[in-house]
Nucleic acid binder design. Structure first.
Lengths: 326, 326
DNA sequence: TTGAAAGCGCTAACAA
DNA sequence: TTGTTAGCGCTTTCAA
């Protein structure tokens, strides 16, 4: 039923090969034939069948994006960067969710491989990476984003987490604060570890004692931000500043303070500057990650590999964070 | 380089057809051959090439999702519902952004058609739908979500916007309020129109005079919510309750109140109950849309059409909203 | 500059 | 129960 090159060829009185050449802008084709063919393409409303083309040329011009969760502003801001950049290359994007677990992660990877994506961009859901080696066996390039994993070597794009934390803490100390609490993520994740490291390093460099009781670890979720802020506020001597390791815990922490009508003078510094961060009332300092750029850099790196350029593999690209003070 | 059915067939000492039958669980195949073939598949690490299969069977088991913007919690919550439901059917999802304009919308539709998606789910970026008829010419089923459009007939899944507004306003009136302001969206969009209609109808039913000066229209963005709340608060006699037509304007409005240290006793009722709505401090009433269900219903309807069941076309599915009072 | 023909990897008649 | 064969729609040698 749908129009094929053959139909166009017949109408134009040329061969299918010629039509294909016109479509692919092959230079060695006469202007006259080209125009004739184009006219017929329009008349018939011909649309390329990318499936057939892909089978022939072994390229789908499609990239997979695998992340722990879809309705997540942070991941999707990166996805936007990815999609915008991919579009420049004429590529499109299959988005999958691993729902935060390894089994589904592997399952989706296999699916993407079956779909013959030209490359895969992954925001890992854990610190485990062994199952990603399946991608290698399929010879499909992959780029890790936001987090690194164990037992899997690949290009990666992420931010300089240590310095991000460090500069925020430094700024807070220079503003005269000394009791700075910490709400961190799951320490098995590289991001959580690095952000904690920046915090500790800054305190040490400024000779501020590290107080274990105002250092809390959760799992980067709204809920754990809520609970940990509750724990901090329940202390006999609460901190007067709290550093929070990501956006969602920041939301949870704020929620706790709002719901409990907090009147204690507390300020928050938090990783991530999202559109909504500005209405999180206790927040004075933000560490902005360049989300769109993370996405576009991931694509650029991936494209290099897709084009079989293996320069400097594995490239670990660390982008700078930016300190936002309100 | 990659393993094909032929390779498996050779190793197993059978024909490619037999391998194909094993893969597709064809019942008329002996247990012995099946086991032998499966063993070879595992030994070689064979993975189906969906591109080749798709070309042959004229189905890609892929659906396109086109929305105005990717990092948008509301759209992505629907996308999550879509992805989860698609997974049950063994389908995957190509996500595209129209960036809110008609030209890109058409361009992405064409791309999806070229990729031979089996169906398309669209959150339209405007009220115009004529360009969507291109999809019909390709015989690809489509389902509209959240909004209806002019000049294009298709199945659609959205909420009962009128009643959503109505019940919220009714609740507010019953709580004793009489001066209820309104912040609406672009009235060319069906959602904006319907939500406004519910507001007006409730006021009329309860014999409350309609005051033009406390009724404002924006464009569903954070910025316009911010500005319009500013306009309302600048009035000589501001309303004591404000109804806001969507999540993003709600954020903007709250932002205005927070930034301007508002002390005037004002309450907000707003469409959409997102994860963050609970920290928007002035909000007392929310109209929850069942986002995940919108997504899954869209998929179910689409699947019907993909399976060539044209029962009751076009189906306009109106889901109920839920009133949340804090 | 163009056409004929082969083939990408798979599935589905048809035959055995 | 299995194999042979053709062909999905496209691109790309090779030959003209």
């Amino acid at each position: 039923m749908p129009v094929t090159v053959k139909d166009v060829a017949k109408l134009a009185g040329v061969s299918a090969a010629t039509v294909s050449r016109v479509i692919n802008n092959d230079p060695r084709i006469s202007l006259k034939t080209r125009e004739k063919v184009i006219k017929c393409i329009e008349k018939l409303g011909y649309q390329t069948n990318d499936i057939a083309r892909s089978l022939k040329i072994s390229k789908t011009h499609t990239v997979g994006f695998l992340c722990p969760d879809i309705p997540n502003d942070f991941f999707m801001s990166i996805a936007k960067g990815v999609e915008d950049e991919l579009r420049k290359y004429g590529y499109s994007l299959i988005i999958c969710s691993s729902n935060g677990n390894i089994d589904e992660e592997l399952e989706r990877i296999k699916l993407l491989c079956s779909k013959c994506v030209d490359g895969i961009i992954i925001i890992p859901s854990t610190n485990k990476g062994e199952h990603f080696n399946f991608i290698n066996s399929m010879k499909i390039p992959a780029v890790l984003v936001d987090r690194l994993v164990e037992d899997f070597t690949a290009d990666a794009v992420l931010v300089d987490n240590v310095n991000g934390s460090y500069s925020a803490i430094e700024h807070i100390i220079n503003s005269g604060y000394k009791r700075i609490g910490f709400i961190g993520g799951d320490m098995r994740l590289t991001t959580a570890k690095e952000r904690y490291e920046g915090y500790i390093r800054a305190l040490k460099d400024y000779c501020i004692p590290i107080e274990e009781d105002i250092i809390k670890f959760g799992d980067f979720s709204i809920e754990s931000g809520y609970n940990l802020m509750g724990e901090l506020m329940a202390l006999k001597k609460c901190p007067d500043y709290v550093f929070i390791s990501n956006y969602f815990m920041h939301i949870g922490a704020t929620k706790y303070l709002v719901e409990n009508n907090n009147s204690y003078p507390i300020s928050i510094a938090s990783y991530d500057d999202m559109e909504l961060s500005s209405i999180l009332g206790f927040c004075k300092v933000l560490i902005r990650q360049p989300m769109t750029e993370i996405g576009s850099r991931a694509v650029k790196t991936l494209m290099l590999r897709i084009e079989d350029d293996s320069t400097g593999f594995p490239q670990i690209i660390r982008l700078k964070t930016q300190l936002i003070c309100k």
